[in-house]
Measured scan of single mutants.
Amino acid sequence: MAMNGTITTWFKDKGFGFIKDENGDNRYFHVIKVANPDLIKKDAAVTFEPTTNNKGLSAYAVKVVPL
C-alpha cells in the first residue's frame, strides 16, 4: 500500500537518501528506485511503497510529487 513522505536527506554523489514517512519513521531509498530522479531534493514530497531490507525500513517505487 502506497505511503506519503518527505525526503529528509539526499546524498546525490552516493545515490541514496532517506524519507520520513507518514508515521514519522525514516526509510532508506536508492536513486534506481525513483521514477523521476531529476526531481529529487531535500524536503520534496514523495509517494512510495514501503518495504524492509536487511538494514531496516526502506522504500521502492518512489515518485517525487512535482510542485
Rank of each mutant, 00 (worst) to 15 (best):
D13S: 12
N53V: 07
E22L: 07
K12A: 12
N53Q: 07
N4Y: 12
K55S: 08
L57R: 06
T9F: 14
V46A: 02
G24D: 05
F18M: 05
V31I: 13
T6M: 09
G17E: 00
V31Y: 10
K55Q: 10
E22N: 07
V46L: 02
P66A: 13
D38T: 11
T9W: 13
D38R: 11
V62G: 01
L67E: 13
I19T: 00
D21L: 03
L39S: 08
I40C: 07
A59D: 02
K63F: 11
K42Q: 09
F29A: 00
T9Q: 14
D25M: 10
K63P: 00
K41F: 08
W10S: 01
G56Y: 08
F48D: 01
D43F: 14
F11K: 05
K55A: 08
M3L: 13
F11W: 08
A35Y: 14
V62H: 01
V64C: 05
T8Y: 08
S58F: 08
V46E: 01
K12D: 06
P50N: 02
E22W: 07
H30K: 06
Y28A: 04
I19V: 03
D25W: 06
G17S: 01
T51M: 13
A35E: 13
W10V: 04
N26T: 15
P50S: 04
W10N: 00
F29C: 02
F29G: 00
N54E: 13
N53P: 04
G17T: 01
A59H: 02
F29K: 01
L67G: 12
T47K: 08
P66S: 13
K20D: 04
W10L: 03
A35T: 13
A44N: 04
F18H: 03
K33N: 15
A61G: 11
G5D: 00
E49N: 14
N23S: 06
V64F: 04
V34E: 03
N53I: 07
G5I: 02
H30I: 08
S58P: 02
I7W: 02
D25S: 08
V65M: 12
D43M: 11
T51L: 11
N36K: 05
D13C: 12
W10Q: 01
P66G: 12
F11L: 06
M1D: 09
A45N: 11
L57D: 04
P50T: 04
V46H: 01
A35C: 15
T52S: 14
M3S: 05
I32V: 12
I7A: 00
N4A: 10
T47M: 09
V34M: 05
D13Y: 11
I7G: 01
N36M: 05
A59K: 01
K55P: 03
I32W: 12
A2W: 12
F29R: 00
A2D: 07
V64Q: 00
Y60W: 10
A59Y: 03
S58L: 08
G15R: 07
N54R: 14
K41Q: 11
K55T: 07
T52V: 12
A59S: 06
D25A: 09
Y60S: 15
K42N: 06
I32D: 15
T9I: 14
G15I: 02
T6A: 05
E49C: 15
H30M: 07
A61T: 06
A2I: 15
K14N: 06
P50L: 04
P50C: 05
F11E: 04
N4H: 14
N53G: 13
K42L: 13
D13N: 12
P66T: 14
M1T: 15
Y28E: 03
I40H: 02
D13W: 10
M3G: 04
F11A: 03
M3A: 04
G5F: 02
K33A: 15
N36T: 07
P37K: 07
G56S: 06
M1G: 14
P37H: 05
L57A: 05
P66L: 11
V34N: 04
F18R: 03
V62D: 01
A59M: 04
T52D: 07
A44M: 09
D21A: 04
L67H: 13
F29D: 00
F16L: 03
M1Q: 11
T52R: 13
G5V: 02
A35L: 15
V31C: 09
F29S: 00
N23C: 12
L67V: 13
I7Q: 00
I40K: 00
F16A: 03
Y60F: 12
D21H: 02
A2Q: 13
A44Q: 06
Y60V: 15
V31K: 13
K41L: 07
K33Y: 15
G15C: 08
F48I: 02
K42M: 09
A44G: 05
I32C: 15
N26C: 14
F16P: 00
N54I: 12
K14E: 07
A35S: 12
I32P: 04
A59I: 03
K14H: 08
S58W: 06
N54V: 12
G15Y: 05
Y60P: 01
L67Y: 13
F48E: 01
P50I: 06
N23G: 05
S58R: 05
T9E: 11
L67F: 13
N26Q: 12
I32A: 15
N23T: 05
K14Q: 09
V65D: 07
D43C: 15
P37L: 05
E49Q: 15
V46F: 00
S58H: 06
H30N: 13
F29L: 03
L57K: 09
D43K: 09
R27F: 06
V31T: 07
H30W: 07
K12V: 09
A35W: 12
D38V: 09
A35N: 09
V62C: 03
F18A: 02
I40E: 00
K63N: 10
A45R: 14
V65H: 11
N26M: 15
D43A: 09
T8P: 02
F48P: 00
I7C: 02
R27E: 00
